[in-house]
Design a protein around this nucleic acid. Structure first.
Length: 505
RNA sequence: GGGCCGUUAACUCAGUCGGUAGAGUAUCUGCCUUUUAAGCAGAGAGUCGCAAGUUCGAGCCUUGCACGGCCCA
């Protein structure tokens, strides 16, 4: 006996029944897992060609050579006929099976097939009494026997833990989940087209870095045995991409994963996907224009409209986006008076009153950022560019020409969350070295998110980096926006979870 | 790290006052040649997340733990 069908006494009744059916099929000489069936049509193509065709003869004629393959997702079986719905990656179609047409013995085998099995069907087309385009099966071939039952068809799979742990089941039974990930792929492809068509060059830079730079975040540590050295999973590609500007690549982008050793919530997964792009001879205001254009293009192509619904709120990407300075936002949206955020002790007291921690030795800019996070960010539902961030929390951004205490940096907020971070790039090597030195001081004072010194990066700037602007856009959050998803886990195929408790299936 | 909520059949969920574990779908058996949440009749299926405790008796009360969700830090 094949070990495929060896019964295990610990199985539930439903699994035993599946094994018994598999055994019946196998003993009839039908292979359970053949790789010989070949299809010549995808289901969506059938609808593409014949969705509106009503002429019976034409349907019969046209469909004679169809072979399709897919998973049985519903099955309505009568005595000598059966209807089933077959699903492939492109869609699903009804299949009609008739004993007197397939033959008594093949039909007996077919009757052992069940929801979840992958089968191949060859046959012609017809319309049922209700007018539904249906394949009349000439032959039905088992391609892969499913040994586990799919969730109930009407309610589907709702348990979020199972949906994330067994995403394969989620994708089979929940069209919404499948749709999100197909849209995600489309979004990334459209972004590539957008940047490629504007002369940007896609590159790949190290994901394992000796000095984790380009952002303020706690990195994951790892170790290279042969080199006997500690490495960090990157928190951002920024410093490498800017080295490429020094190298003369002028317009570059990278779409890939970043890793940050932080908590998990509806907006954060430890590994997440960003696009970062750098554009020589441009500044942060050019980026704002480009970003609006990018988002409108994506929304139009993915959602069909520049106004997208997010959790029942229309987000208007089509209108010009609000552009407001960081300090103005603290006043106009946060409701603060200037002295409440400009005076160090007042700001610190306010932060503590609002329930946030204020670390010893924390810079004013950091306190202001905390005030912003609490008082302003959640209110930025429609698109806002908030610009001119304090210099002491922007160690890689170019100072504003008129006021060196602020930078030509902005962050983009939509639906109360940060979607992008961008700035005119700091290309003065002396200033950059000083800013790194400041960060190192903060690190030594206990801020484990502060930036490290990167001498090679400063050396690169000493060769001369053209003036440039660059931006990072969180692709997961962008996909959330365009698919109306409230949690980042809904847009990541396999979000990070604790290991499953053994014994649970 | 804290608070609240959840975990019961393969799935979706009930479970009253602490007193023999329930439904729908799915599965199995029988009938059924145009159904589409097919129908009719019958049947089987449970480590009530795990572990202690209280109790004559715990799915239910208490404590701890695990996993997940939401909110806060």
């Amino acid at each position: 006996m094949s070990k495929n069908t060896t019964p295990a006494s610990t199985d539930s009744q439903i699994l035993r029944h599946r094994k018994e059916k598999a055994k019946f099929i196998e003993e009839a000489g039908i292979p359970l897992y053949p790789n010989t069936f070949r299809r010549n049509t995808q289901i969506a193509d059938i609808f593409g060609k014949f969705d509106t065709c009503v002429d019976a003869d034409a349907l019969t004629q046209a469909g004679q050579d169809f072979t399709v393959a897919g998973r049985i997702i519903t099955l309505r079986s009568f005595g000598k006929i059966a209807f089933l719905n077959l699903q492939d990656r492109s869609g699903s179609i009804q299949v009609y099976a008739q004993r007197d047409h397939l033959g008594t013995e093949p039909y007996k085998i077919f009757k052992k097939f069940e929801v979840g099995d992958i089968i191949g069907v060859q046959g012609g087309l017809f319309r049922t009494q209700t007018g539904e385009l249906t394949i009349k099966a000439e032959t039905i071939t088992l391609i892969t026997k499913s040994m586990r039952p799919l969730p109930e068809k009407f309610h589907g799979l709702k348990d979020v833990e199972t949906r994330y742990r067994q995403r394969y089941v989620d994708l089979i039974v929940n069209p919404k989940a499948k749709d999100i990930f197909m849209k995600r792929t489309a979004i990334v492809r459209l972004m590539r087209n957008f940047f490629d068509s504007r002369g940007f060059m896609e590159v790949e830079t190290p994901m394992m870095q000796a000095i984790p730079g380009g952002a303020t975040a706690k990195p994951f540590e790892t170790f290279h045995n042969a080199l006997d050295m500690k490495l960090y999973m990157r928190i951002a590609p920024e410093l490498y991409l800017k080295r490429l500007l020094v190298g003369g690549f002028e317009k570059v982008y990278e779409i890939n994963r970043n890793f940050r050793n932080e908590g998990i919530d509806t907006q954060h997964n430890p590994e997440f996907t960003m696009i970062e792009f750098y554009w020589a001879y441009a500044n942060f205001r050019d980026l704002m224009d480009l970003t609006e254009e990018l988002f409108r293009t994506l929304a139009q192509k993915v959602c069909g409209d520049t106004t997208v619904m997010f959790q029942d709120t229309p987000i208007e990407l089509g209108k010009p986006w609000t552009r407001m300075t960081f300090y103005d936002s603290l006043e106009k949206i946060g409701g603060l008076r200037p002295e409440q955020y400009q005076d160090y002790e007042t700001a610190k007291a306010l932060v503590q009153k609002l329930g946030e921690n204020a670390q010893v030795g924390e810079k004013l800019g950091k306190l202001q950022a905390k005030l912003f996070d609490i008082l302003v960010e959640p209110k930025l539902i429609q698109p806002h560019f908030i610009y001119h961030y304090p210099t002491d929390i922007s160690p890689l951004a170019r100072r504003n020409d008129a006021d060196p205490s602020i930078t030509d940096r902005y962050e983009l907020f939509i639906t109360g969350h940060e979607l992008a971070n961008a700035f005119s790039e700091l290309n003065n090597p002396y200033d950059q070295r000083d800013r790194f030195a400041e960060q190192v001081k903060e690190k030594e004072a206990g801020d484990d998110e502060a930036h490290s010194m990167d001498e090679d990066y400063v050396r690169a700037l000493e060769y001369g980096m053209p003036p440039a602007a660059g931006q990072g856009i969180g692709i997961d959050r962008l996909v959330m926006l365009l698919t109306d998803s409230a949690s980042i886990r809904e847009v990541i195929l396999f979000p990070l979870l604790r290991p499953e408790v053994s014994g649970k299936e």
